[in-house]
Amino acid sequence: MKIKEDQQISNVEIEKYYKILNLEPGASLEEVRQAYRHQALIWHPDRYPQNSILQAEAEAKFKEISHAYETLKTDLSSPYPTLPTPPVVTEPVEVPPTPPVVTKPVEVPPTSPPLPMGWLTGVFLSYAIIAWILTTLKIPSWVWVFLSVGWLMVTIAASEDSESGQPWLMALIFAGAIAGWVLGNEAGGMITALVWGGVGLGLGAMAGSESPAKGVIGLLTIMGIAAIAGLIAGTKKGDWLSSLVGGGFGSIMGLMLGIILDAIFRSRAKLGTGSLLGLVLGGWIGAWIGAGKQAMMRVIQRMQPEVIIAAWGAIAVVAGTVAQMVAGEKLLASYNGFYTFLILAITSGLGLSFGWWLAH
Rank of each mutant, 00 (worst) to 15 (best):
L183D: 01
G188K: 00
G188Q: 02
T192S: 13
T192V: 01
T192F: 01
L194I: 14
G198N: 03
G200P: 05
L201Q: 10
L201S: 13
G204H: 06
M206F: 12
M206L: 14
G208I: 04
G208P: 07
E210M: 11
E210T: 10
K214M: 08
K214S: 11
G215Q: 13
V216I: 15
I217P: 02
I217V: 13
L219M: 14
L219H: 04
L219R: 01
L219N: 06
L220I: 09
L220K: 08
I222P: 02
I225G: 08
I225Q: 04
I225H: 06
A226I: 01
A226Q: 07
A227N: 01
A227C: 03
A227M: 05
G230Y: 07
L231I: 07
A233F: 02
G234Y: 03
G234R: 01
T235I: 04
K236H: 14
K237Y: 05
K237Q: 10
G238D: 12
G238L: 08
D239V: 05
W240P: 02
S242T: 10
S243T: 11
L244A: 07
G246R: 01
G246E: 04
G254Y: 03
L255W: 04
M256L: 14
G258L: 06
G258C: 06
L261Y: 10
A263H: 12
A263D: 08
R266L: 05
S267Q: 15
R268N: 15
K270W: 14
K270A: 15
K270N: 15
K270I: 15
L271D: 11
T273V: 14
S275I: 09
